[in-house]
Amino acid sequence: MNESQPQFNAPYRGRFAPSPTGPLHFGSLLAAFGSWLMARRAHGQWLVRIEDIDPPREIAGAADAQLRTLAAFGLLPDEPVLRQSERGDAYQAALERLLAQGDAFLCHCSRSDHADVGGVHRACVPGASRVDPALRLRVPDGTTVVFEDALQGRIEQDVAREVGDFVLRRADGLWAYQLAVVVDDAAQDISEVVRGADLLDSTPRQILLQQRLGLPTPRYAHLPLVLGDDGRKLSKSSASLPVAEDAPVATLRRAWLALGQNGDALAEAASVADALSSSLRHFDPARIPRDRTLSFTPA
């Protein structure tokens, strides 16, 4: 069993990292606001990264629209925005290191080859051959990662059994999220990762990669995932409407309440600046719900 301990003693550096697959919805804003509050409360820095490594899923202009929405809510990064689409050389260097260590390998399997075991890759299909093989991380039997999440508590995952050898570079040549996020969190000296609980199951894979690459492990806090009134994740829900930039204070109040905070603190805020200033004075991380999901009711 591998129990991970955060390795950062440096000043607080947090981030918000959306994928440009559409406009920011309320769940995205909640993650941005929550991570911003945690960083500002610690007198730390808050960064924004655009995770644009999956062109087939991206919408033209979405990244710039997301940045405009963040600005409309006063959530401005302390450093220039990093775009993953410009970081291929860094991912390639990490991949070559893993290959040299024997931690990564070429995989000629197709997705259907492991469909009967839920896609969990434990061994390549004998004789499989593709002109475009993927590259995977080798995850030996018994590989278990344990870490303490600031909101969700102790998390333990048997990565070998539940995930298997996972993809680092896809068969279509695109970089996998797990590798890119680990490389970029280290490059940006991210000490605290505050994000939605939909990414909680990915964290053990990222910690495993950090260890294989000799990179520091940030501290993690996974905020409740916002569900629509139909019980589905907002990005897949009928409630996945863009946040209203024409009423930012009202929307910030709703996000504030969703984070479990005292509603009276923002009741008199007349502007975004007022709302953010008051939120910093009254923010209490201990009030954030420890649930993995919370329901969303359209305004």
Results as ranks from 00 to 15, higher is better:
146 V>M: 07
57 R>F: 02
146 V>F: 11
169 R>Q: 12
153 G>W: 04
115 A>S: 14
63 A>D: 01
3 E>L: 12
178 Q>C: 07
251 T>S: 02
67 L>M: 10
297 T>F: 03
199 L>C: 13
14 G>F: 09
235 S>N: 11
130 R>E: 13
52 D>T: 14
153 G>M: 02
112 S>N: 14
166 F>K: 01
186 A>W: 01
198 D>T: 14
60 A>N: 08
238 S>K: 08
44 G>H: 08
17 A>T: 04
31 A>C: 13
62 A>D: 07
278 S>M: 04
194 V>F: 06
40 R>D: 12
223 L>F: 02
114 H>D: 12
136 R>Q: 13
32 A>I: 15
90 A>P: 00
63 A>E: 14
78 D>H: 01
185 D>L: 04
227 L>N: 03
220 Y>W: 07
52 D>N: 15
206 Q>F: 09
283 F>G: 11
229 D>V: 03
241 L>W: 05
50 I>R: 11
207 I>V: 14
155 I>A: 15
225 L>V: 08
167 V>P: 03
143 T>G: 09
240 S>W: 02
144 T>Y: 03
129 S>F: 13
135 L>V: 15
55 P>E: 10
17 A>L: 11
106 L>E: 01
61 G>M: 06
31 A>G: 14
8 F>S: 09
121 H>V: 15
125 V>G: 05
108 H>W: 03
286 A>R: 04
83 R>D: 04
153 G>C: 04
52 D>Y: 10
